[in-house]
Simulated assay, not measured.
Amino acid sequence: MSDSTVLTAQDLIAQYGGIALDKQNDLAAVIGDNNWNADLEQGVISFGEHIVFPIQILGTFSHSSETFLWGWANTASGIPENLLQDALQIKQYGEKTGLPLFTTSQFDAAVNDVHYIGLIASGMLGSSAYYVADYGSGALLVTIKSPLIDEARTETPQRVLTVFPQLISLFEMNHQQALAAYLKAKGFEVTAKDKELSATYNSNTIVATFDELHRLASLNGNLS
C-alpha cells in the first residue's frame, strides 16, 4: 500500500474492488452455509467446529441508527488492541491522504457501504477476504487472513465475466480503470487503447469497450 499517489475512495474501489470481490467467492466456497461465531478474546471467527480464521476488526454497523463506527473509535466495547491493527493502518492511510472515510470515527452508512469498506480494506491490505457478521442489531466487519482460503483459490478466468459486472452494479467507479486493475491482479497481460481494453492469460482472452465516460459498453471473453 503506497502513499506516493493520493487516491480517492473511488480510485481505491476501482483499484482493489475486483480482486477483493473475487476473493469473496473463495471464502464462500470454504465456509459454505455454516453459521458464524466470533471469539474476540481469541481473535477468531469460526464457521462450524473445524473452520476457524484469525480476524482483524475494522468496525461495526448499527441497523437502528444506520451508522458505521470504526473499531479504533469503539472504546466502549473494549476491543483488544491486537485486533485493530488493520483498522489503524487504514486510518493512518486516511490521515496521510486526507480521506475522511478512513478518519471519521462514526458516520451515516448503509449495509452497502460496509461492503464498500470491506472490499477496499481487503484489497489494500492483501487479506484473504472480509466478512460482515450480522448479529441482529448490527454487524461486525472483519478482515480474514488464512491459508485455508488462499489455497482454495483456483485460477478461474471465467469469473471475471460475472464478478466485474456485479462490482460495477454495486458501486460508482471508473469502469475502465477498475477492469484493468482487476485483470492485472488476476495475472492477465492488459493492453488499453482509448475506449478499448484487451487482456490475455495463457489461452484466455478478454476484450472490453467503454463509452466516453469510461463506463463499460461490452465485455466478452474467449475463456477455457
Rank of each mutant, 00 (worst) to 15 (best):
G43D: 00
G43E: 00
I45Q: 04
S46I: 00
S46C: 00
S46Q: 11
F47E: 02
F47G: 00
F47Y: 15
G48H: 11
E49A: 12
E49P: 14
H50W: 14
H50S: 13
I51H: 14
I51S: 12
I51L: 12
I51W: 06
V52T: 09
V52Q: 12
V52P: 00
I55N: 00
I57D: 03
L58C: 01
G59A: 05
T60N: 12
F61K: 14
F61L: 07
F61H: 03
T67I: 07
F68K: 09
G71S: 15
G71P: 11
G71E: 09
W72A: 03
A73H: 15
N74S: 13
N74C: 04
N74A: 07
T75D: 12
A76R: 13
A76L: 13
S77Q: 14
S77W: 11
S77Y: 11
G78Y: 00
I79W: 12
N82G: 05
L83R: 01
L84P: 01
L84C: 01
D86H: 05
D86I: 03
D86F: 14
D86V: 06
A87E: 03
A87P: 04
L88K: 08
Q89I: 04
Y93R: 09
Y93S: 05
E95L: 09
E95I: 10
K96A: 13
T97H: 14
T97I: 12
L99Y: 06
P100D: 10
P100H: 10
L101T: 11
L101S: 01
L101E: 15
L101C: 01
L101Q: 09
T103G: 03
T103W: 05
T104Y: 09
S105G: 05
F107I: 07
D108F: 15
D108K: 12
A110F: 09
A110M: 13
V111W: 03
V114R: 10
V114L: 02
V114C: 11
H115D: 05
Y116N: 04
I117W: 02
I117A: 04
I120F: 07
A121Q: 03
S122W: 13
S122I: 06
L125C: 05
G126P: 09
G126S: 15
S127Y: 11
S128W: 08
S128I: 10
A129W: 02
V132F: 02
A133E: 10
D134W: 01
Y135H: 03
Y135S: 14
G136Q: 02
G136W: 11
G136I: 06
G138L: 10
L141K: 00
V142N: 01
T143Y: 02
I144C: 07
I144T: 08
I144N: 03
K145D: 10
S146N: 09
S146R: 06
P147M: 06
P147F: 12
P147D: 10
L148T: 09
L148I: 14
L148G: 00
I149H: 08
I149M: 08
D150V: 03
D150F: 09
D150S: 14
D150I: 02
D150L: 01
E151M: 13
E151P: 00
R153N: 03
T154D: 10
T154G: 13
T156E: 15
P157G: 10
P157M: 04
Q158T: 11
R159P: 02
R159E: 10
V160F: 12
V160R: 05
T162R: 11
F164G: 01
L167C: 03
L167I: 04
I168Y: 15
S169L: 04
L170R: 06
L170M: 15
L170H: 15
L170D: 15
F171T: 08
F171P: 12
